[in-house]
């Protein structure tokens, strides 16, 4: 279980990105996080694996307060948190397989990994995950030769070889067309349902939220505005989250 308590993040220059945000996520839950651009969604997700240092508050995961973990402990915690990014964040000059194997870096021996030596078991695992997202034939291509949708599948495979208990997805489909968006969301859904991996996913389109999420939270200027089933987001709630002038699309 993940419990976020009074999480606050103030960036240098007194920019308040998160303002005492608290919520809980049950194991195996698919949580969507909505809100305008700049509302703090990315910061929230990055605070959970401490790519961004929180200013105050607690993040308790499986009984451990992540905000207090030492650097070494943090590396071990991150292994169990996969992350998927809006812009895929693949290393474009590396092979697809290498990109996926990067997900094993927290497990393998640092010394051997520096020389690009991975155990056979890990390579098999990487190929399995590539097969799962249907791009085994691309494994030895350079990552930047792939299309956007394919790149995001590599991103998912990279998160999955971590054998994660949680996946943080930061607007995973915002750079993709609607058809591809559904494909990618279906992979995430499959991972959530079949493997029981907890998913925290920030999204822009409400229809995706309705269709895939068990529960949604909404942020506006760092404040938690909503926490409940996606079905409860009616027009009134919508205006509260997105502002008075906002119009609903999709």
């Amino acid at each position: 279980m993940l419990e976020v308590k009074n999480l606050t993040k103030i960036y240098p220059g007194d920019v308040l990105a998160l303002d005492k945000v608290s919520f809980k996520v049950e194991p195996g839950e698919f949580l969507a996080c909505i809100g305008l651009s700049g509302s703090g969604k990315s910061t929230l997700l990055r605070c959970i694996n401490r790519l961004v240092e929180p200013t105050a508050g607690e993040i308790v995961w499986n009984g451990v307060d992540i905000t207090r973990a030492s650097q070494d402990e943090m590396l071990r915690i991150r292994r169990k948190m996969g992350m998927v990014f809006q812009h895929f964040n693949l290393v474009s000059r590396s092979k697809v397989l290498t990109n996926v194997l990067a997900g094993r870096l927290g497990y393998v021996n640092p010394f051997m990994s520096v020389f690009n030596r991975f155990p056979k078991k890990d390579i098999d695992l990487a190929m399995q995950q590539l097969e799962r997202v249907g791009i085994t034939d691309q494994a030895y291509k350079r990552a930047d030769e792939l299309s956007g949708g394919q790149q995001q599948r590599v991103g998912i495979a990279r998160a999955m070889v971590q054998e994660p208990e949680m996946i943080l997805a930061d607007e995973p489909v915002a750079s993709l067309d609607p058809v591809l968006a559904h494909t990618i969301m279906q992979y995430l859904e499959q991972i959530n349902k079949e493997d029981g991996v907890m998913i925290l996913c920030s999204l822009h389109f409400l229809d995706l939220v309705h269709r895939y999420a068990d529960r949604a939270i909404a942020l506006n200027e760092g404040l938690l505005m909503f926490d409940g089933p996606p079905g409860e987001i009616d027009d009134e709630k919508f205006k509260e989250i997105y502002g008075k002038e906002a119009e609903r699309i999709g």
């Binding site: 694996n49 790519l51 590396l75 071990r76 915690i77 991150r78 292994r79 948190m81 996969g82 992350m83 990014f85 812009h87 895929f88 964040n89 693949l90 290393v91 474009s92 990067a102 997900g103 094993r104 870096l105 927290g106 497990y107 640092p110 991103g155 990279r158 971590q162 943080l168």
Partner: peptide, 12 residues
């Protein structure tokens, strides 16, 4: 981006 992604896997 890639730097962030690799860090997120728990790489040192």
């Amino acid at each position: 981006g890639p730097l962030e992604a690799v860090q997120a896997t728990g790489a040192n």
